[in-house]
Simulated assay, not measured.
Amino acid sequence: MAEEDSGQEKTEQPTPKRLKEAREKGDVPRSKELTTMLVLMAAVLGAFIFGGQLVERMIGMMEHNFLLDRSAVFDSNAMIAHLGVSIREAGLALAGIFGLIVVAAIVGPIALGGWNFSAQALQPKGSRIDPLAGIKRMFSLKSLVELFKALGKFALVGGFAMLILWQIRGDIIALGNSPDRPAIQAALEIVTWVFMVLSAVLIIIAAIDVPYQLYDYTHKMKMTLQEVKDEMKNTEGKPEVKGRIRQLQREISQRRMMKAVPEADVVITNPTHYAVAVRYDSESRNAPIVVAKGVDFVALKIREIAAEHEVPMLQAPALARAIYHSTELDDEIPAGLFLAVAQVLAYVYQLKRYRDHNDVSAPRQPDLEHLDIPDEFKTDPPA
């Protein structure tokens, strides 16, 4: 079906946002046939469960009302009392069946579209009382489909009902010649079996209607490609706005990262392209963590801050690249790089001790160019 406004066809499946907005407006898939079938089946089930009780209470109610004293007939108070007793007995007799019917009437709509309460659907709308809109709905394709459905349901249910009544016409006529109690029991059995057969017919109708309602709802909710694009734009924002947000996020992250550089134990460099700042706190972490990392200009800024705060800097190109590509900020060094990082930190700690205490011998610098880096962490140097 073509869109009247844009000329585009609705080819895209509805997005979660569109379905959510439809639910908020009270627009969910429903099947009247499913609800009708469940209500009728609940009535049949109630007749099977509470049929004996219903017969006994009906007989008792009839005896109570027909076996009256002559004086009670002319006593308005007595007649009102009889009416109250009759209403109470009828209510108790039908309570079980009505209870099952109410449950079925609630479960029927929920079974297809789920529970949904919409305040927007309760709000008055001028389009609902607009004669032109009403005429348009009357002659729409959906109304035509509903008309054919109603005619088909009437023909199918009516046909089966006439067939059943014709088959049991003898039993129905025989009720007039039967005593009260057997006649009421037989009438209840006849009604129960008739309802059971009609329920079976409605199962067929519901089995056809439910898939159609789901298909019709999905088709109605479909979107044009332009609608999907507009929704994505409204949801996620314009590309330039998103780009600006990402830029601000990067700047905030970099400022926070640069503040952590003075707390690092060592800065490992490439020496020019990469720089990673590593800190090890044995009390709070099981392994060294990366507090800052960057390439090119960011790496230069890390080196400048490290030099300003006298943070040791060592050139270990392979290790710097491996840490940069394998570890995120505030994450622990991978287990495969423990040995190489431990060698660097050991040298740094020894160098610090040597500078603080001149009575110890100068540490021997490890071969930083040829540290033990596992193959899965090795990366090619930048051109």
Rank of each mutant, 00 (worst) to 15 (best):
R23P: 08
F74V: 15
Q226A: 14
H370S: 13
Y215S: 05
L45I: 08
T36R: 01
L68D: 01
V44Y: 00
E189T: 13
E4P: 05
S253Q: 13
A292W: 01
G84K: 09
I106E: 07
K220A: 14
G152M: 06
G237F: 10
E12D: 10
K142C: 00
A307P: 02
A340E: 01
R244D: 03
I204W: 00
M41E: 06
E283G: 03
I129A: 14
R70Q: 14
A292P: 04
H273C: 10
F297K: 13
F338S: 13
T269G: 04
D380R: 15
G84P: 04
L68A: 12
A340Y: 02
K378D: 13
E63V: 07
L45W: 01
D75K: 09
L92C: 01
N116Y: 01
A322Q: 01
A133R: 14
I106D: 08
P271T: 08
G99T: 06
E283N: 11
I101L: 09
L68M: 15
Q120T: 10
A318F: 00
L368R: 10
Y274C: 09
R355A: 03
W115E: 03
A42R: 03
A299D: 08
Q343Y: 02
K222V: 02
V360S: 10
F377D: 09
L67C: 09
A93W: 03
E3D: 15
V266Q: 11
L198N: 00
S199L: 01
D375G: 00
S326Y: 04
G158T: 02
G96R: 13
K233G: 00
L67M: 13
A264L: 12
R18A: 07
V103F: 06
A307C: 03
A161R: 00
I87E: 09
S199Q: 00
